[in-house]
């Protein structure tokens, strides 16, 4: 009785991991790239979870109101940028702790999004469309796995661009110097606070866009359980990726793929220990951190001005 939707058996697992890597990773990728820029400038914005949720809500609401999902993406980015600006400005005051501000931004963003988002739980907003890269295959599974959203491509390109920019452009150098040594930046005449504020605003913008991906593409609806901590994980991924944009890309893909592993194995009928498989992304992260640990290289690559490493 098998038809076009023929069974693919064990191939389903690598396929699901691949598809999951692409689908699930995008918000991680966008948020972690944004956070990477912010942290490179010497600040940590822990509030990106709140920004992500706020972006998801604002994106969904705007797409619903205007009928254009791309307007939603833009609105999500702008709302994220406003939150980034708030964080950037507040942290520029003397003796203000960026971690504390981050946590309050997270709570503010989450609460505000839940409050303002109430009327948008029910209605259906138009969704972002994706590009089909699976046209060469007649397997519906592969076609579906290779439905790739432009935001993912944008994120991947951005990772390469940032990698290049931090190494080879004056602007990238400026962000790095400001993040590594405030004194050196001042000596070279770079404006420290404005650089950090702009870096936080850009980080907020990207996190907002990541939220729009959640609400407007995958899983593609607005509700209060939507993010469930993805913004926090993305911030942790930046440390995991040792402040390298390209490694953020690989880390996000790894995380996305690992989160698809649990459901894929259960769909195959491998049902023992599914709680363990569901914990795979976290176990994997721990494992890699332990594997890559060396006594003298702990936190290597960390920007020198980051409050995490500053003495």
């Amino acid at each position: 009785m098998s038809t076009a939707g023929a069974t693919i058996g064990w191939w389903g697992v690598p396929l699901a991991v691949l598809a999951g890597a692409i689908r699930v990773s995008t918000p991680y990728l966008l948020v972690s790239l944004g956070e990477c820029i912010t942290e490179k400038s010497g600040r940590i914005n822990l509030g990106l979870e709140g920004v992500l949720i706020m972006g998801a809500m604002a994106g969904y609401a705007t797409a619903f109101a205007t009928g254009s999902p791309w307007a939603g993406v833009l609105a999500a980015g702008l709302v994220g940028a406003v939150f980034g600006l708030l964080h950037g400005l507040l942290c520029s005051l003397k003796r203000v702790n960026d971690i504390a501000i981050g946590i309050s931004i997270m709570l503010l963003g989450t609460g505000l999004a839940f409050f303002l988002g109430k009327p948008f739980v029910q209605p259906q907003a138009p969704m972002l469309s994706s590009i089909s890269f699976g046209f060469w295959s007649d397997s519906t599974q592969i076609q579906s796995a290779l439905q790739i959203n432009p935001l993912f491509i944008l994120g991947a390109v951005l990772a390469f661009a940032l990698h290049f920019a931090f190494r080879h452009t004056r602007l990238g150098l400026q962000v790095r110097i400001v993040g590594d040594s405030e004194d050196a930046a001042r000596a070279l005449g770079y404006p420290v606070l404005p650089t950090r504020i702009v870096a936080t605003v850009v980080g907020g913008f990207l996190a907002g866009v990541g939220g729009a991906f959640l609400s407007l593409y995958y899983p593609g609806s607005w509700n209060e359980g939507l993010s469930s901590g993805q913004g926090i994980i993305a911030v942790a991924l930046v440390i995991f990726a040792r402040w390298e944009p390209l490694r953020c890309l690989w880390a996000s893909l790894l995380f996305g793929g690992a989160s698809a592993l649990g459901p894929a194995l259960q769909a195959m009928g491998v049902s023992s220990g599914y709680y363990l498989f569901n914990a795979a992304p976290y176990a994997l992260t721990l494992g890699i951190l332990i594997a890559s640990w060396t006594p003298n290289r702990a936190l290597s690559g960390a920007p020198g001005e980051l409050s995490l490493v500053r003495q």
């Binding site: 693919i8 899983p219 359980g225 989160s259 698809a260 195959m268």
Partner: peptide, 19 residues
């Protein structure tokens, strides 16, 4: 309530031929 995981689960089941 885990929307992302539910979506992954739905996709995996469909990939395995559940209709």
């Amino acid at each position: 309530s885990l929307p992302v995981k539910e979506a992954e689960a739905a996709n995996s089941l469909i990939d395995q031929g559940c209709d």
